[in-house]
């Protein structure tokens, strides 16, 4: 906190933020055993960040799949390779677009809400009140939200991918007239369950979920207790999450490939 207020340059301040964030992660992990008694709260948060995000995730997944099929069909038709549309749609959604777009949407839809909620709890002294009542805010407020993000992201990403494939099928087969059997058989011949689905969809989105949830709770918990401070913290959640997602995506891809 003190590091952020000191008039250092932007590099030092960013480093201090990252350091604070890392320490905060350790605190959350330490608070996880204590938060087991608030499992109901975790379920409520899962409902809020996961189930309530389904609409936007499904809509976006559908459209991403549709536009991918549309674009690829026209490019691949140059080479007479439209039969590969299904394969390329599936691979690009599983490996990149599914986890990344879901994580970006998740940061915008759920991350900001978490930051604003915790920031306002701090600003309206609810956190201080909890501490007075000997309720650990890390265990009751922060850990359930972090856990919910961790669990929700892979599930949301899977739903996104399934809808993406559906959208790709809709445009590719029903609209542009790719053969249905070719679409599926080329896809199933190429998509590898370990490489593409476990490493791509599940593992990537798990990491993204952890990062977005961590940034959201950290920004909320450390937001200055003013309306301006909460507004800044919410903005920072989106910016920092987006940068972290895209940078981590490259690193993860390099490691997982």
């Amino acid at each position: 906190m003190s590091a952020r207020m000191s008039p250092d340059n932007v590099v030092v301040r960013s480093l201090a933020q990252i350091g604070d964030c890392g320490l905060f992660l350790l605190k959350i992990l330490a608070a996880l055993p204590r938060s087991t008694r608030y499992a109901r709260e975790t379920v409520r948060q899962l409902w809020f960040v996961g189930a309530m995000s389904l609409t936007i995730i499904m809509t976006c997944g559908l459209f991403v799949g549709m536009v991918l099929a549309l674009q690829l069909y026209h490019v691949l038709s140059i080479f007479g390779g439209t039969a590969a549309t299904g394969t390329v749609v599936a691979i690009s959604i599983y490996r990149e677009l599914g986890p990344v777009v879901t994580a970006l949407l998740f940061a915008g839809r759920a991350g900001t809400a978490i930051t604003a909620e915790i920031g306002l709890m701090r600003a309206t002294d609810q956190i201080a009140a909890m501490e007075l009542m000997a309720v650990d805010p890390l265990a009751y407020v922060v850990a359930p939200r972090f856990l919910a993000g961790l669990i929700a992201m892979p599930l949301l990403s899977s739903v996104f991918c399934a809808l993406g494939i559906f959208g790709g099928h809709l445009v590719g087969v029903n609209w542009l007239g790719i053969d249905n059997g070719t679409f599926w058989s080329n896809m199933t011949a190429t998509v590898d369950v370990w490489q593409d689905i476990i490493n791509g969809v599940v593992w990537k989105s798990f990491v993204f979920g952890a990062v977005v949830a961590l940034i959201a709770v950290f920004q909320g918990f450390t937001a200055p207790p003013t309306s301006e401070g909460v507004a800044y913290a919410t903005t920072r959640t989106v910016v920092a999450s987006s940068i972290a997602i895209l940078a981590l995506d490259f690193v993860l891809t390099a490691f997982l490939m």
């Binding site: 892979p154 899977s158 399934a162 593409d196």
Partner: peptide
């Protein structure tokens, strides 16, 4: 959704 992806769209199919 995950089970669908893994069993219907991958080489497991």
């Amino acid at each position: 959704a995950l089970a669908y992806l893994a069993t219907q769209t991958s080489s497991i199919a």
